[in-house]
Amino acid sequence: MNTDFEIKAERLIIRSDLVLSRVAELQKRIGQLDLSAVSQLDLSAVKALDSAGIALLLTLQQELKGSLSIISPPAHLVTLLGLYNLESQFKLDEQPE
């Protein structure tokens, strides 16, 4: 069982920090998944995120044709998106369904 992420229905749940030292491996492993049904990205377990994590989110957004909603974004993600002027690139849902 993978503890870094899992897919439940239309939601990709990420439990790993999205930082430079982890993103390349995560991107490779997530890239092997069928994401065709995914429309939500749950980041409630993410404790650390940097610009490499933002790049991974943008890549996922592009692969999913812009239909990605981020569930429970960490506060520092919201801050980074503001600093990079990327707030409009993602739909942020503060509360999980």
Score class of each variant (00 low, 15 high):
46 V>N: 05
25 E>K: 14
59 T>K: 11
10 E>C: 14
40 Q>Y: 11
44 S>C: 05
41 L>W: 01
73 P>F: 03
31 G>M: 08
80 L>H: 04
22 R>E: 10
38 V>N: 01
97 E>W: 02
4 D>R: 15
71 I>M: 13
33 L>M: 13
66 G>S: 04
90 F>V: 01
2 N>F: 15
82 G>M: 00
25 E>D: 14
22 R>N: 11
84 Y>A: 09
7 I>W: 07
9 A>Y: 13
31 G>C: 10
87 E>D: 15
20 L>S: 03
42 D>P: 01
92 L>H: 10
71 I>Y: 05
22 R>K: 14
16 S>M: 13
95 Q>H: 10
70 I>Y: 00
13 I>G: 07
26 L>S: 07
87 E>P: 02
81 L>R: 06
51 S>E: 07
31 G>I: 14
29 R>V: 07
88 S>W: 01
27 Q>A: 08
63 E>I: 05
13 I>T: 15
92 L>V: 13
44 S>A: 12
30 I>A: 05
72 S>D: 14
29 R>K: 14
32 Q>N: 15
15 R>C: 12
86 L>W: 06
69 S>F: 08
96 P>L: 08
95 Q>W: 10
58 L>V: 08
4 D>T: 03
96 P>C: 11
29 R>F: 06
55 A>V: 09
68 L>H: 00
52 A>S: 14
62 Q>T: 04
55 A>W: 02
9 A>L: 12
59 T>W: 14
93 D>W: 15
67 S>H: 11
63 E>F: 08
6 E>N: 15
31 G>H: 13
30 I>M: 05
31 G>N: 07
97 E>V: 15
83 L>G: 09
23 V>L: 05
18 L>F: 03
56 L>A: 06
77 L>M: 10
49 L>H: 02
95 Q>S: 13
8 K>R: 04
51 S>P: 02
84 Y>G: 13
41 L>A: 01
66 G>H: 05
59 T>I: 08
80 L>D: 06
41 L>F: 02
45 A>Y: 11
66 G>F: 15
90 F>G: 00
72 S>G: 11
